[in-house]
Amino acid sequence: MITRDQLATLLDRLVEKNKVIAPVSDNRGVVRYTAIRTAGDVAWEFDRAKVPPKSHFLPQTEELYCYDTTGGELRIEPVPAAGRAVVFGVHPCDLRAIAALDPVFDGVFKDVYYLDKRERTVVVGLACKQVLPGCFCRSYGIEPTDGEGADLMLTEVGDRYYAEILTPKGEALVREFPELFSDGGVEEGRRGKEALSRELAGQFQREVDLTGVKEKVDTMFEHPYWQEVARKCIGCGICTYLCPTCHCFDIIENHSGHRGSRLRCWDSCMFTDFTLHTSSHNPRSTKKERVRNRFLHKLSYHNERYGLAGCVGCGRCVAECPVNIDITKIIADIKEVD
């Protein structure tokens, strides 16, 4: 168990030697995972961060390497590896989303930028305290108190947090600051967590039945339904940028004279230029193809490649889509259409 004050102390102590990323609210109340200077920066009462914590592992703009071509020579310098970091306050849906991203950046070709941050980052999970109208993680088998994927999982119970050590990294973190954690009231904490879990389970407004959805959607590539969805779509990047499992990126040039660097930037399959060839041929030339690709990626392709769901039911796209394209409705419609 750890009290709020002790947790604040923990974050303050961690800041001394680590980059500490936590939900921070900006001047307009928009919460994102941002590096904090003190525990005072943390938006303790946040519900769901607008931008998911993937922004730590896959920053929106990230320098990959620098180069210098002065005098006709070529020198390429990789950017030094990231240091130790702690990401605090990751909700269960976003924990699951990180797990969904891991195999993308691992595999035969290892993405050292992502994997290095994953290895050197301790993920401190935080159970949800409420279910928002767009949330449907439960349909993906996630409970809003699940710690799966966290190194250390915290659940607010009364005026304290019930802390569960789930990995060696989590254990090392607790061992580093033994004075901040106590064993007293652990049983009460466990029961509190169970009660919270039961309470939250009853709060879901959106539930989808995923049975047979992948199989059905795999037969729907040519279905006119996608045109229907695409008519509404304005082709912005909100759904992809706020999606905790979307990982598409561009690599761009940033140079001045002979020196420069290459940056990796978030990109979106919703954008017209995403798949545009130099020849001007575009395999996904209209919104229909782009919308279809996104939903097939979420509901089939990711699963097919990695055996993991490509959606975690965080509800961000549901909440923020300017034209109310709602993936829970899409899933329901897929089951319905002929």
Partner: peptide
């Protein structure tokens, strides 16, 4: 500095009617 560059403002705007936006020119 808070902008996400999601292009939603541009894409929803009836005044943004360019067939190819200057920010997307190859």
């Amino acid at each position: 500095s808070r902008c996400l560059r999601c292009n939603a403002c541009r894409n929803v705007c009836p005044a943004c009617s360019c067939k190819e936006c200057v920010f997307e020119q190859a």
